[in-house]
């Protein structure tokens, strides 16, 4: 005996595919790799050194340092502005934890030193050859880091000559970048360079909260 056909109440529903449950992506606490690649494509050490070579070409010895410092002041600002733009565009869970703590609990103390530290780390990871930035101090008073075997210093030496590199005009690059961070985060802080690659074999920078 043929089985009586029952009405399929879900016939219409079955015509559209059942939405499968997709688990939310696990949090990423790391920096976005595309962001690092984009920064490297625009501000890689070789590219900046090439631009410097063009900027000081044909200049007299006296004008070279002045031109190099002016170049690095402009470039340092552009470098950090791009870093800040990308850093805010490409978020990660590490910074979100800080910002949520500020937004939800009003923990303003969480902003320093971690927000400036993130921009500093993105900037150098996107342009240097190391896998992590050697942070020397990060506490309520100071954020300090060291740049060993600077890729930019080496590239300047290669493209423009060792004497140009030893002038350390590139200090303006890092110092202007730090000043750009200071203005962006609107915190009172004093930035200083306490060691230089030409003299000490590495650069060291301190950002002191006032």
């Amino acid at each position: 005996m043929a089985k009586a056909k029952t009405k399929d109440y879900f016939k219409e529903l079955k015509k559209t595919p059942y939405p499968l449950f997709i688990a939310p992506k696990p949090y990423s606490f790391d920096l976005n790799e595309d962001m690092i690649d984009m920064l490297r494509a625009e501000f890689g050490a070789e590219l900046v050194a090439d631009k410097l070579a063009t900027a000081i070409k044909g200049k007299s010895k006296a004008d070279t340092e002045k031109a190099a410092r002016a170049f690095f002041t402009d470039q340092g600002k552009a470098w950090m502005q791009k870093t800040i733009q990308l850093g805010e565009e490409y978020s990660d869970r590490t910074i979100e934890v800080i910002l949520e703590s500020v937004d939800r609990q009003g923990n303003q103390f969480m902003l320093w030193p971690h927000v400036p530290q993130r921009f500093v780390e993105i900037a150098y990871l996107g342009t240097q050859n190391f896998l992590k930035v050697p942070i020397i101090l990060n506490n309520a008073e100071v954020l300090a880091y060291r740049i060993p075997q600077c890729a930019l210093y080496a590239a300047i030496g290669e493209k423009c000559g060792k004497n140009i590199a030893k002038m350390m005009a590139c200090s303006e690059y890092c110092m202007t970048a730090l000043d750009t961070v200071r203005k962006h985060v609107e915190m009172e802080m004093l930035n200083e360079q306490v060691a230089s690659t030409a003299k000490d074999g590495y650069c060291e920078f301190y950002m002191r909260k006032l």
Binding site: D30, Q117, R118, L131, I135, L137, N139
Partner: peptide
Amino acid sequence: NPKNYARNMYKLRA
């Protein structure tokens, strides 16, 4: 020694 409390927030993976 304050240096013993300092660490990077991020690292790139090879």
